[in-house]
Design a protein around this nucleic acid. Sequence first.
RNA 1: GGAGAGGUGGCGGAGUGGUCGAUCGCGGCGGUCUUGAAAACCGUUGACCCGCAAGGGUCCGGGGGUUCGAAUCCCUCCCUCUCCGCCA
Length: 472
Amino acid sequence: MAYGELNRCAPRNELVDFMIVNGGKSGYNIRPNSGKSIIMIDIKKIRDDFEGTVAQLARRGVEKETVEKARDLDARRRSLLGETESLKAKRNAASKEIGNLAKAGGDIAAAKAEVRAIGDRIAEIDKELAQVETDLRETMLMIPNLPAPEIPTGPDSSANKVVRFVGEWKDPAYPIPDHMQIGEKLGIFDFPRGVKLTGTGFPIILGQGAKLQRALIQYMLDVHCQQQGYTEMLPPFMVNTASMTGTGQLPKFAEDLYHSNADDFWLIPTAEVPVTNFYRDDILDGVKLPKITPESPVKLTAYTPCFRREAGSAGKMTRGMLRVHQFDKVEMVNFVHPDTSFQQLETLVKEAEAILTGLGLHFRVLMLCSGDMGFSAAKCYDLELWAPGEQQWLEVSSCSCFTDYQARRLNCRFKDADGKTKLVHTLNGSGVALPRLMVALLEQHLQEDGSVLLPEAIRPYMGGIDRLAPVK
RNA sequence: GGAGAGGUGGCGGAGUGGUCGAUCGCGGCGGUCUUGAAAACCGUUGACCCGCAAGGGUCCGGGGGUUCGAAUCCCUCCCUCUCCGCCA
């Protein structure tokens, strides 16, 4: 769908304006109970430790002027807030007086005029305040999450750090063609007919390949649920604007999403969206909703298809299954206690790794540098599978700790042991994305005779067969 | 798609212009009683913002309006439920 045809979000700025600046004009209840700084890092960090925050953000390429602007707008906001609030206190008291006076039969005309004057003054200040808050919000929107101290500093993927290699790879004596050729021989892919049905980037998987895909999904969900303490969820594949805003796909990345005009629904680009939004605007207090403690996070997993327009990436790594508009993925989401979020991230990475290790695959773990992380992440690990046919590493999982950044936007909180309501920390990780897993699996497990040996772990899900055999 | 009803605190449910941030019930927390538990009884219990604090302010689906003053009146948008129709 052409971006310009989207009814509610034609030009990008208008979208931002529509959803954030004008808030509820869309009619959506995007931010009930909203505080003022909901979409961003904690403004208190800038207030209390300005230089430190500037230094941390500089690692991510944020200019000092931006942070200064936020600081100044925040100061202005608080000053205006103080003014308007003391006037409101005055008006409230005076109005109450008028009520009493009227009951007693006194003359209230003069008092009314006086209070009206106060009301006018309040309206003036509130108008300026609204402008300041809009500016502040827009400024804060440009500020990404604070990077964890231990991650490498750098502008792009070249500065990512390889943390470890897992498994082994030895080139066999015979040549390994790429996954397209392997798939061709196995008769499991049909790209041209995908183009016919829909368009480029919508491949069709056939026969044993389709079954393998289904088997892998079930294998992954079983590992997460039976061995790692996850609860499985089968969520909607389309969500509303409030949900897309909650996890941060909107307003900035509208052009990467598929959108249904008639209903104003969005196709999910990842299960992270519905699963994380499951607890949007909730307080996890251990009564009807689960309880969160440092020892026990809430862990959800879901299989979903994922839909991505991939606008702007035409031509980049688009061969075969490597970058497609629709793909399957199993996703893990954790709602964790702030004290143990980074520790839980390590666990999450291990949980994703267990999937790959269980399939006997060779991969590496990267710690992303400050410049290569997603906007909301404080720390992020990528898992990359070796694809010998492509001669490149393929990202199949990204495991991130968002600290409270995403939770602030989601308005997702919990009751701590001290009785206070606090923001949760959120983590998510792929466990894992299927097309590239399929590619690496085909290429790493290719046998000399053109068959592909199936890992033990997957065989029970494949009716006991031990390999995919060539059909031609 | 047609017709109707309704959106209030963790949940249920009162409240139609002036101590209503909101009666009450449930749930939660604390206590009494009990060997322990249940039951019963007593007490307590919303969120957010500014502030060192005292304190103040905001919030009754979202936005706007009327008014000295709005959960309560008006406009508008969104959502949910029920019945009918259609369909898996």
